[in-house]
Every structure is written in structure tokens, then in C-alpha cells.
């Protein structure tokens, strides 16, 4: 998976660093700061296939940020935190193609600093004002959890604050580590899924949708809360039919008892769209009926977008998912 591990001198004695080194039989090199190397040159995105490096570093500031409107389910205060940059999966529409100048993975290992910053916010929560912390903005929350094994300490923190919620967004089906963790009511594991016919085309190197659904079922049985992100929805001539099939599969595997179902259509800022064209010139993304909207985004026309969202929502509503748990993600 990784060609090299580059470790900051200031974290070399961290327990988590030693454990990661042991689990990966890859050459380690010592550096002063990951910022001396990461994103200093524009490393082609597709180098992640054969020339991916791993940085282990300490984050100094900016542990949590306020989430934009419509990021999460309505209600409460929403924040996000990123203790890693970049992702081992490869989805053709992914905004990470344009987020950094390099696809190398950076893992920030000073979790105690993250936990302190998060707790400062959590103490302000109440029954009228839940505090949401979302992970997975710049990476997949669980893809490397078997390697890093950091989440239990977060679960323990959130279990102390009944009005807090921790959302981990993922496409992973890897449960080795999570099976050993103690679930709590505050943690929501939300899985991004789409119909197999679309996912097999655009979600490269991700676990099949069937595996993700199976993982959701297992986690639910273990006592975890799960949620669904139907995001991004990519146009297909048989969209309604494909999502009806997906809704049926979700119902069979997981049931309707999920925290929420969010729906969002695919959209691209212009510069990201150029990267997609460069990296995946044969992608079905380029056959989509996009237009350029006022804010410079490539989006579906409003009428088509509404129809798509309705088809997807209806597919799940008709399967018995309550309307109260459905919301549109990042939609104006």
C-alpha cells in the first residue's frame, strides 16, 4: 500500500507511531516537518496507485472547524475535524483530487490534542442544542482504522456527553477493529452507498456496496447506530429503478432503523471537474447532463436535480423509511 513512511521526529516516540510501523513492513524515514514535503510539489493524483507515501505527523492548530450549512442533519451545532488527509480509496468524483497537491496520506497522531479541542465544544451542548462532530471530511473515517486503531478513545469521550454526536463517514467494510470497540449511543457510523451498477463504474477500489451493507448490519447488531449517505447521486437513465433496488437491499440487510438518510447529487467546482477529466478521461461523469451554474459549479439543471432527488427519496420512503429521517445534503 505505501512506498515509504515519513515520520516527524517529534512523534517518533508515540505509541501509535510504533504500532503503525510494526503493522506496516515499510521503510521509515525521519523528517522535521511533514509540511517540508507534503504538497510542496504537485504530485499526480494517480500516483496513489503505485507511489503512495504515508506521513505521520503532529497537528499544531485548527483541530475543529464549523461545518457549512446543510452539512448534517438539521438541528444542533455542526463541526468537523480531520485527523487525516487523503484516502486510500479511489472514487472518480472525489473532491480530494483537488484538495491537496499530493495524494499522499497524512495521519495526525496527536489525538489527545484533538480530544481536548472537541471536549471544549462538547461541554456547551444541551438537550436543546446537540453538538455534532463529523469526521471524514478529507479522508475515509474507517478505511485505515485497522492500522491506526484510534476511535475507542473518541467513543469514550463522547459517551460522557449525552447531547453530543460523533459521525464517522465511510465507504469501508473493514470491521476488524470496530468489532473490538465498545459502541455508544452518541456514535453514528454513516455509510456512503449507491446502486451497484453506478458504484462499480465510479467507485474504484472501494468495497462493493453489498459488503458495505453487510458491514452496516453487523455494526447495528453490535449496538452501533448507523446512517446512510446517498451521496453523490449520479444520473442514470434507470435512476428510479436502480434506487428502488438499492432501497430494497438496504431494507433487507439493515432495516429502516437508521439514524438518517441523506441525499445529495454530484456536483463539481470547475477546477475539480478539470481534474476529473485529467485523471479519468473515460469516466461516465463526462457523459452527465451538467450545466455550469451561477456559482461556477457543474451541476444538473434544477428541474432534473429535483426529479433525481425525488426519485431517490421516494424509493426509500416507499420502502418504509420515515420521512423525518431524510434530508438533502448540501442542497440549496
Amino acid at each position: 500500500m505505501f512506498e515509504k513512511i515519513l515520520i516527524e521526529n517529534q512523534v517518533k516516540n508515540y505509541e501509535i507511531v510504533k504500532n503503525i510501523q510494526q503493522r506496516l513492513s515499510v521503510e521509515s524515514e525521519w523528517i522535521d516537518s511533514y509540511q517540508d514535503y507534503f504538497s510542496k510539489v504537485r504530485k499526480p493524483y494517480l500516483h496513489k496507485r503505485k507511489r503512495l507515501n504515508l506521513f505521520l505527523a503532529k497537528r499544531e492548530k485548527g483541530f475543529i472547524k464549523t461545518a457549512p450549512d446543510a452539512y448534517g442533519k438539521e438541528g444542533g451545532e455542526h463541526y468537523y475535524f480531520s485527523h487525516s488527509f487523503n484516502c486510500i480509496f479511489e472514487c472518480e468524483y472525489c473532491y480530494l483530487q483537488d484538495s491537496f497537491r499530493s495524494p499522499d496520506i497524512v495521519l495526525f497522531v496527536n489525538h489527545h490534542d484533538y480530544l481536548d479541542a472537541i471536549e471544549e465544544k462538547l461541554v456547551c451542548g444541551s438537550s436543546d442544542n446537540a453538538i455534532w462532530m463529523h469526521a471524514g471530511e478529507y479522508s475515509d473515517s474507517l478505511a485505515l482504522s485497522g492500522l491506526t486503531r484510534e476511535w475507542q478513545q473518541y467513543f469514550d469521550l463522547f459517551s460522557k456527553y449525552p447531547h453530543s454526536r460523533l459521525e464517522l463517514r465511510t465507504k469501508s467494510a473493514s470491521l476488524q477493529y470496530l468489532k473490538k470497540c465498545k459502541p455508544n449511543k452518541q456514535t453514528v457510523l454513516s455509510f456512503s452507498i449507491s446502486p451497484h451498477e453506478i458504484a462499480s463504474s465510479v467507485d474504484r477500489k472501494t468495497p462493493p456496496v453489498a459488503s458495505r451493507l453487510k458491514a452496516m448490519r453487523t455494526l447495528k447488531n453490535l449496538g452501533f447506530s448507523v446512517a446512510i449517505h446517498l451521496d453523490p447521486v449520479v444520473y442514470h437513465d434507470r435512476l428510479a429503478e436502480l434506487y428502488r433496488e438499492l432501497a430494497s437491499q438496504v431494507y433487507e440487510q439493515v432495516g429502516v432503523g437508521v439514524e438518517y438518510v441523506s441525499v445529495g447529487v454530484v456536483r463539481f467546482p470547475s477546477h475539480l471537474y478539470r481534474e476529473v477529466a485529467r485523471n479519468y478521461p473515460d469516466s461516465i461523469i463526462h457523459t452527465q447532463p451538467f450545466l455550469k451554474s451561477k456559482d461556477g459549479m457543474r451541476r444538473y439543471p434544477k428541474v432534473l436535480r429535483n426529479r433525481m432527488l425525488k426519485s431517490v427519496r421516494d424509493a426509500f420512503l416507499n420502502q418504509g423509511f420515515p420521512e423525518s429521517i431524510m434530508y438533502d445534503c448540501m442542497e440549496d
Binding site: D36, S39, K40, V41, R42, K43
Partner: peptide
Amino acid sequence: CHIEGQSTRHQS
């Protein structure tokens, strides 16, 4: 492209 010292150009 490397300029000098620990300075590189972003463009590749």
C-alpha cells in the same frame, strides 16, 4: 522543479 535549499516549485 527544485529552486534551491528547501524550495520547490508547485507546478509539475
